[in-house]
Simulated scan of single mutants.
Amino acid sequence: MARVQKVDLMQVSILQLAEQYLSFVEQARQLRIELAADYLVMAAWLAFLKSRLLLPPDPEDEGPSAEDLAAHLAFQLERLDAMRQASARLMGRDRLGQSRFVRGQPEQIARKRNVTYEVGLIDLMRAYARLKTKDEFRPYAFDRKDVFTMEQALERVRHLIGFAGEWTMLAEFLPDGWGGGERGRSATAATFAATLELARQGRLEIQQAESFAPIAIRLRKTGQSRPKSSSQTE
């Protein structure tokens, strides 16, 4: 009835709506009670909108007006009708296996692909060179766990030089566990660089009897001048 009257709630007859509802309930009682419940909700909603349109608006009511509710209901009914029409058009199309059928034997179509590479001698040589040199140009990465830094050597030499005797071999200042292999070379180089820095600052003296001979160091005494002998190096 709402669709026939275009949801013009001012023209909806409450008596006709109630009679139609009672007739529908009698028919739906034998089928499903859920249908009667849905129709009851719709009838109550239309009756509520009818009363909102007939009665003067309440100034304290902050909700939507009766006109807005009626327009929203009309929009919902129009959308429902559009869904029903779309569903009818969809179900009216040809169905696979009933109105239309596929071919029983698919066609055997063979695809053949021909690949042609257009390259020259220079391109081949460049590709070969990239493959050969791909693993050769790698940045050098070393394990810092096996490196004894100069800062560590400076701290160690400053701490031990005061307890050393007159002349102490440089090897005596190497840390424990750094005596051989790459760790030994790293510790020796860092300790030697640290002694050169301390000698430059005037805090110790370095002595070597000859080339490739063991290096000895000692703490420079206060007020002592630097030796000028060629056998001692600062």
Rank of each mutant, 00 (worst) to 15 (best):
A2I: 12
R3D: 11
L9V: 15
M10L: 14
V12F: 12
S13K: 04
Q16A: 11
Y21K: 10
F24Y: 12
F24T: 09
V25N: 03
V25I: 06
Q27T: 11
Q27K: 13
Q30T: 12
Q30W: 00
L31S: 07
L31M: 03
R32Q: 14
R32P: 03
I33C: 03
A36M: 01
D38V: 00
A44Y: 03
K50H: 13
S51Y: 08
R52A: 02
L53Y: 00
L55C: 06
P56W: 02
P59W: 00
P59T: 03
E60F: 04
S65H: 01
S65C: 02
A66L: 05
D68E: 14
L69A: 06
A70W: 01
L73C: 11
L77C: 07
L77E: 10
E78K: 13
R79M: 15
L80K: 10
R84D: 13
R84I: 07
Q85K: 13
R89P: 01
L90W: 09
M91A: 13
R93Q: 14
R100D: 04
R100L: 08
V102S: 11
Q105K: 08
Q108C: 07
R111Q: 07
K112Y: 07
T116V: 11
T116Y: 04
Y117N: 10
E118C: 08
V119M: 10
L124M: 08
L124V: 08
A127H: 03
R130P: 01
R130V: 05
K134I: 09
D135C: 01
F142S: 13
D143C: 04
K145L: 08
D146M: 12
F148E: 03
M150L: 12
E151Q: 14
Q152W: 05
A153N: 04
L154P: 04
V157D: 04
H159E: 15
H159N: 12
L160V: 10
L160K: 14
G165I: 00
G165A: 10
G165K: 09
E166A: 05
T168Y: 00
E172V: 10
L174A: 06
D176Y: 06
D176V: 15
D176C: 07
W178R: 13
R183V: 06
R183Q: 12
R183E: 09
S186W: 00
T188P: 00
T188A: 10
F192V: 06
F192L: 13
A193Y: 02
A193T: 08
L198M: 07
L198G: 03
L204C: 01
Q207L: 11
Q207Y: 13
Q208P: 06
A213F: 02
I215L: 14
R218L: 06
K221H: 06
K221N: 06
P227R: 06
P227C: 00
K228F: 01
S229R: 10
S229A: 14
Q232P: 02
